[in-house]
Amino acid sequence: MDLKKLEEKYAIPSRELVEDVKQIEGDIMLLGIAGKMGVSMGKLLVDALKLAGKENKVYGVSRFSDPKAKSQVEESGIVAIACDLLNDAELFNLPNVANVIYLAGHKFGTVGNEDFTWAMNTYLPGRVSEKFKDSKIVAFSSGNVLPFVKLNEGGVDEDATPAPIGEYAQSCLGRERVFQYFAKKNQTEMLIYRLNYAVDFRYGVIMEIGKSVWNGKPIDLRTENVNVIWQGDANEIAIRSLLHCEAPAKVLNVTGPETLSTKWVAKEFAKIFGKEAKFEFEAEGSALLNNASECHRLFGYPKVTIREVIELNAAWIQNGGDEFGKPTHFQERGGQF
C-alpha cells in the first residue's frame, strides 16, 4: 500500500471548506503551527484558498526548534516565521493580520514544569489578545476543562460548568477565561474551539488502541468511552470557525457524534488483524465526553466515519507507517500529564 497516496487522498479540501474560505477576508496566521495539527491545517488552508481562487497570505508561526517542521511549512506555501511567542518583542513584531488561529499550548510534561504550562496556556493568551485585538481569533482549548460525566448523560454541552482536574486542565480553563476577558474588553471577535480528541494516521486514541491490539498489549478500560474526530475534519472546522467568531467569545465543543466504546474499537482492530484484543481493569462508569451538537449544526457531521478511521489506522499500522510518538493519555483520570 502507498501510504503517501493514502494520506494525500484524505488531505483534499471539501467543497464546503472551499466555499467558506471564499468568505474569509484578509490574511490568516496560525500561531503554534509546528504542533500535531498545525502543519496539516496550514496546508489544507493554502490548498482551499487556491481552489477558491483567493490570494490571502497564510503565515505559520512557531519557535521551529525542529528545522524539518519549518521546511514542511514552507513547502506547503505557508510563510514561516520563527518566533518565541513568550518573548514580547518577537510577538509584537509579528505582522498584523485579520485572522488568527491560536494553536499554541503545553500539555505533556506539565508535572514538574507547571510554571511553563501556566505561562503558555494562560499568560500568553492575554499577550496574544492584546497584539491581535483587531483580528478574529479561533483559540484552541480542550475538553479536559469539562467534568467527567456518566455515560448515560450523553456528554456535556457548552453551557456546562467547567470542572478541570489537575494543573494542565486548570491552565486550559485559564486560557479560555483570559481570551473571554479580552473579547469583552476589546470587542475582539473570538471562538473558543474546545476539542477532544483529534485522531489521525500518526497519533490519537484510535491509533493507540490499534497499536495495543497489534502488539498484544492489554487496553486500560477504566475510561472505557471516548469521543474522537478525524484530524482532517477538525482542521476544516477550525478554519471555517473564522466565520463564526463573536464578541463576547463563542464557545464551541468539537468532536465526533458517537460515544465510542474503547472495547468495541479494540475488537474491530482484532477482526482486521486476526489477533486477540486484551483488556485490563474495570470501567469506572464516567468519562470526559462532549456534546458537539452545535458544531454539527454549523458544519454538519464529520465526513470521515469511525469505521473509516479504524480501517485507515489499521492499514497504517500494518504497513509500518510513522508515528508522532505523543500518546494522548486518554485513560488519565487524575489530571497528571
Results as ranks from 00 to 15, higher is better:
Met1Trp: 10
Asp2Phe: 01
Glu7Met: 08
Arg15Tyr: 14
Val18Phe: 01
Ile24Arg: 00
Asp27Ser: 02
Gly32Tyr: 05
Gly32Phe: 06
Gly32Pro: 01
Ala34Leu: 08
Met37Gly: 12
Gly42Ile: 00
Lys43Val: 00
Val46Asp: 04
Asp47Ile: 07
Leu51Val: 01
Tyr59Arg: 00
Asp66Met: 10
Lys68Met: 11
Gln72Asn: 13
Gln72Ala: 14
Glu74Pro: 00
Ile78Lys: 07
Asp84Glu: 11
Ala89Tyr: 07
Leu91Arg: 04
Leu94Ile: 04
Ala98Asp: 12
Asn99Thr: 00
Leu103Glu: 05
His106Arg: 11
Val111Glu: 11
Thr117Asn: 09
Trp118Phe: 12
Ala119Trp: 10
Met120Asp: 04
Asn121Leu: 00
Glu130Leu: 13
Asp134Ile: 09
Ile137His: 02
Val138Asn: 12
Ala139Asn: 15
Ala139Met: 09
Pro147Val: 06
Gly154Ile: 07
Pro162His: 02
Tyr168Arg: 01
Tyr168Glu: 03
Ala169Gly: 03
Gln170Lys: 15
Leu173Gly: 00
Leu173Ala: 08
Gly174Cys: 07
Glu176Ser: 11
Glu176Thr: 08
Glu176Met: 09
Val178Cys: 11
Val178Gln: 05
Phe179Thr: 03
Gln180Thr: 12
Phe182Gly: 01
Phe182Lys: 00
Ala183Leu: 05
Lys184Met: 14
Lys185Trp: 06
Asn186Trp: 11
Gln187Trp: 05
Glu189Thr: 08
Met190Gln: 05
Asp200Arg: 12
Tyr203Trp: 12
Val205Gly: 01
Glu208His: 01
Glu208Gly: 06
Ile209Val: 04
Gly210Met: 01
Trp214Pro: 13
Pro218Tyr: 01
Ile219His: 06
Thr223Trp: 14
Glu224Ala: 15
Asn225Asp: 13
Asn225Pro: 05
Gln231Gly: 08
Ala238Leu: 12
Ala238Glu: 02
Ile239Gln: 09
Leu243Gly: 08
Cys245Ser: 03
Asn253Lys: 07
Asn253Thr: 07
Val254Ser: 14
Pro257Met: 06
Val265Pro: 03
Lys267Glu: 15
Glu268Leu: 02
Ala270Arg: 02
Ala270Gly: 05
Ile272Lys: 01
Phe273Glu: 10
Ala283Trp: 02
Glu284Arg: 15
Gly285Phe: 00
Gly285His: 09
Gly285Arg: 12
Ser286Val: 10
Ala287Ser: 15
Leu288Arg: 15
Leu289Phe: 15
Ser293Met: 14
Glu294Asn: 11
Cys295Leu: 06
Leu298Arg: 01
Leu298Thr: 05
Tyr301Lys: 15
Tyr301Pro: 05
Tyr301Gly: 11
Pro302Asp: 14
Thr305Asp: 14
Thr305Ile: 09
Glu308Pro: 01
Ile310Ala: 12
Leu312Gly: 03
Asn313Gly: 04
Gln318Asp: 09
Asn319Met: 13
Asn319Gln: 09
Asn319Glu: 14
Asp322Pro: 08
Phe330Tyr: 15
Gln331Leu: 08
